Computed example of a mutant assay.
Amino acid sequence: MTDRFAILLAGSIDPTPALRAAVAGCRSIAADRGMAHAEPLNLVPELWIGDFDSAPPDLLERHADVSRETFPAAKDRTDGELAIEAAIRRGARRLLLVGALGGPRTDHAFAHLVLALRYAAAGFEIELFDGRERAVPLLPGENRIAAEPGAAFSILKFDDLEGLSIDGARWPLRDVDLPFDSILTQSNEAAGDEIVVRLRAGRAVLLVQTAPERI
């Protein structure tokens, strides 16, 4: 049984062939309104989790046969966090967060990036993908991220960065230290089919676009 789980979250997605390919073969768990992504992605979640304060009645009716875990609205963890923890209890080691970027709640997108950094630091393979953008936590050491030539990418900092190098980019960097408030790592472009980021210390996420001709 696979240890790769797709976690369906409430942010917007574009059910492109690239996204459908990414979730193919994954086990899946939906968090509240994230269940709306199941049908476009041809997924049947094995669990639906949350407080169900944002799931519309028709969604609840259409997926009445999916096993549910219900939590109170007043709680100290998000529905997405609960869904990730449920996946880990079921053996997840690789996590794909779908619907984690964009959508009506910017604070939710920020929380998902923070969660990605947390679980990556704990040893889980994790990425966020909505069909057009992918986000990958960057760990100290060497990080290799596939990208289409010409794809736009940025490195979002959550800390001061030490010893940052970027190869495979239109504007490479060599062993630089950057404070948190620097925007030097915004709006770069992939020069080939792989971006290589080396980092000595600090927390960051690489956000890369899917090239339109490859969607």
Rank of each mutant, 00 (worst) to 15 (best):
residue 85 E to H: 05
residue 93 R to H: 14
residue 125 E to Q: 14
residue 24 A to K: 06
residue 84 I to S: 01
residue 10 A to I: 07
residue 37 H to Y: 00
residue 81 E to A: 13
residue 62 R to Q: 04
residue 189 E to K: 03
residue 94 R to F: 07
residue 139 L to F: 15
residue 95 L to F: 02
residue 141 G to L: 15
residue 137 P to W: 09
residue 158 F to N: 08
residue 40 P to A: 03
residue 89 R to N: 12
residue 100 A to R: 10
residue 128 L to N: 12
residue 49 I to K: 08
residue 57 P to A: 00
residue 15 P to Y: 06
residue 137 P to Y: 10
residue 3 D to Q: 10
residue 85 E to Q: 10
residue 52 F to A: 00
residue 169 A to G: 00
residue 71 F to A: 11
residue 23 V to T: 02
residue 136 V to Y: 11
residue 111 A to D: 06
residue 165 S to H: 12
residue 106 T to F: 08
residue 42 N to L: 15
residue 102 G to Q: 06
residue 36 A to H: 07
residue 205 V to A: 04
residue 56 P to E: 01
residue 180 F to I: 10
residue 207 L to T: 05
residue 117 L to E: 02
residue 72 P to W: 09
residue 57 P to R: 00
residue 114 V to G: 05
residue 188 N to P: 01
residue 165 S to L: 06
residue 107 D to S: 05
residue 36 A to N: 04
residue 88 I to L: 02
residue 101 L to H: 08
residue 98 V to Y: 13
residue 6 A to F: 10
residue 202 G to Q: 14
residue 94 R to M: 10
residue 81 E to R: 13
residue 121 A to S: 15
residue 15 P to I: 07
residue 153 F to C: 04
residue 6 A to C: 12
residue 211 A to H: 09
residue 16 T to D: 03
residue 27 R to K: 12
residue 70 T to L: 05
residue 195 I to C: 12
residue 7 I to D: 08
residue 177 D to T: 12
residue 23 V to F: 04
residue 74 A to C: 10
residue 208 V to M: 04
residue 183 I to N: 13
residue 24 A to P: 08
residue 90 R to L: 03
residue 172 P to S: 06
residue 100 A to H: 09
residue 155 I to E: 00
residue 47 L to Q: 05
residue 203 R to G: 12
residue 32 D to G: 01
residue 47 L to M: 04
residue 169 A to F: 12
residue 153 F to D: 04
residue 158 F to G: 09
residue 55 A to I: 06
residue 126 I to M: 08
residue 124 F to R: 14
residue 32 D to A: 02
residue 105 R to C: 12
residue 33 R to Q: 11
residue 12 S to C: 01
residue 141 G to Q: 15
residue 4 R to D: 05
residue 61 E to F: 00
residue 201 A to F: 13
residue 30 A to I: 02
residue 143 N to H: 12
residue 78 T to E: 03
residue 166 I to A: 07
residue 59 L to Y: 02
residue 64 A to T: 03
residue 176 V to F: 02
residue 86 A to G: 02
residue 204 A to G: 13
residue 208 V to R: 01
residue 126 I to F: 04
residue 24 A to I: 07
residue 26 C to N: 07
residue 150 G to I: 09
residue 170 R to V: 11
residue 138 L to R: 11
